[in-house]
Design a binder for these strands. Structure first.
Length: 408
RNA sequence: GGGGAGGUUCCCGAGCGGUCAAAGGGGUCAGACUGUAAAUCUGAUGGCUCAGCCUUCACAGGUUCGAAUCCUGUUCUCCCCA
């Protein structure tokens, strides 16, 4: 019976799943050999992937390896998700230009739950082995940690590009940061990883895993690196730049975000975040960029929220952005009569929560960005009186509210 | 342990004791334009009871009519020497 087998698919399908969108597979021939054997013996490979709960939310950049894990999981491989509660406290220096604050156990614990919940949006957690690395690192004790540190030299560590850059730029590098690659590498030993997935910035850490596994007489893991995608505007994806799309974002947020993606980035996003075939992707990219991008948004938002919600979000985008019409549902707020029957426009906008300060309101008003029932007002001091009926108040293109008369 | 250089507004970074809410760039916001909330161009960008007032330049004191700029102490970072 075919379905009594744990591994599904042909060697070619397995190789393709590993290779799709991968930047590097080290070593490719090693992977093939191990796959042949795995398939022959129907013995799933252990695919390691680590996530540090260092910030509370995952974005689409994080989802890239998750999608690959999902593919591999569906072929029957065993995904081992390491929730790096110990490593998170150290902080991954990869791609870091700054020393970052050490997280406390409490902060890490708080992020931990949201992390697995978010990973579950892509992965089948029923078929995922989830382990926390604090388990073994806590047990290791001082002596164990000391032993671990003897496995690499400072010269080997400092070879790393991020350390190089920071050192030559005169920026601080914490000693704790040297621990990070060793810890991540040791995780591979603990879970006996056959393959480890990681972003290209993880190259060094992944290599340390191979080294430690060899030292422990394990077969060194195959490394598969996935590209790091930039944010929507081409800069590094980061929540603080406001250029990321979160895994928990609504269909609307995903769609509106993806529609402003740089055109040039579309090819990579299609390949990494959708499972459309490569010929189809090529076809889409030949067509109008807007059409292609709309499809990308539909695919991604559809994956997380279903076709219907994605289609609705696409409609909303067309209506509000392309056709510059008002959103379907506009928040309403009532006139606050405790402030009297009239209010200076700048203050009113702040009261309504449309701006953060009256100064910001003044700026928006003076620059012609504020409309009262469609009419532009440019005097921040003009006294607005309580409306008789619903009034549409707009600040810029994005902020809209209905102002209603005070409760009778 | 010794010596030197630094910590400036969201970020980077300039800043003769008064003319500094503090150059410039990035980001952000607003306007124009656009297939797009992209790109490009223009303007704005601490707060407020806004032609004036209040709070900012690591922290705490001090000198001075007056300090981001001078002094003292504290703290953090980097570099060189040991």
């Amino acid at each position: 019976m075919a379905n009594s087998k744990r591994l599904k698919g042909t060697l070619g399908e397995h190789m393709a799943a590993f290779q799709r969108g991968a930047v590097e597979v080290i070593e490719e021939r090693e992977l093939e050999k191990r796959l042949v054997r795995a398939l022959a013996e129907d013995e799933p490979m252990r695919i390691k992937f680590g996530m540090d709960p260092s910030s509370p939310d995952l974005h689409l950049g994080h989802a890239i390896p998750l999608f690959k894990l999902r593919d591999l999981q569906r072929l029957g491989h065993q995904v081992v998700l390491i929730v790096g509660d110990a490593t998170a406290m150290v902080g991954d220096p990869s791609g870091r230009s700054m020393l970052r604050p050490v997280l406390t156990r409490e902060q890490v614990a708080a992020n931990l739950e949201t992390y697995t919940a978010q990973a579950a949006l892509v992965l089948d957690l029923e078929r995922t082995e989830i382990v926390r690395n604090a388990g073994w690192f806590d047990r290791m004790g001082f002596e164990g940690i000391l032993q671990l540190t003897t496995r690499m030299t400072v010269a080997q560590m400092v070879e790393r590009d991020t350390f190089q850059k920071r050192l030559s730029a005169g920026e601080p590098v914490g000693i704790n940061e040297f621990l990070y690659p060793l810890m991540q590498g040791w995780d591979s030993v603990e879970v006996r990883a056959d393959v480890e997935l990681g972003g290209t910035d993880q190259l060094f850490n992944l290599l340390v895993g191979r080294r430690l596994q060899e030292q422990e007489s394990q077969r060194p893991q195959v490394m598969v690196t996935t590209p790091l995608v930039n944010g929507l505007d081409g800069r590094k994806m980061s929540k603080s730049y406001g250029n990321s799309v979160g895994l928990t974002d609504s269909a609307r947020e995903m769609t509106f975000g993806l529609m402003r993606l740089d055109d040039e980035a579309m090819a990579v996003w299609f390949l990494q975040l959708t499972r459309l075939g490569e010929p189809e992707i090529a076809e889409l990219l030949k067509g109008h960029p807007r059409t292609a991008k709309a499809r990308l948004a539909l695919e991604v938002a559809g994956f997380f929220h279903g076709e219907k919600a994605a289609a609705e979000a696409a409609e909303a985008f067309n209506r509000e952005v392309r056709d510059k019409e008002l959103p379907a549902d506009i928040p309403e707020i009532r006139w606050d009569s405790s402030l009297g029957s009239t209010r200076a426009l700048a203050n009113l906008l702040k009261d309504m929560g449309l701006v953060q300060s009256t100064s910001e309101a003044r700026r928006a008003i003076e620059q012609g960005g504020v409309r009262w029932n469609g009419e532009v007002h440019t005097d921040p001091r003009s006294e607005m009186s309580e409306p008789k009926e619903r009034v549409l108040v707009q600040v810029g293109k994005k902020r809209v509210m209905h102002l209603l008369p005070a409760e009778a």
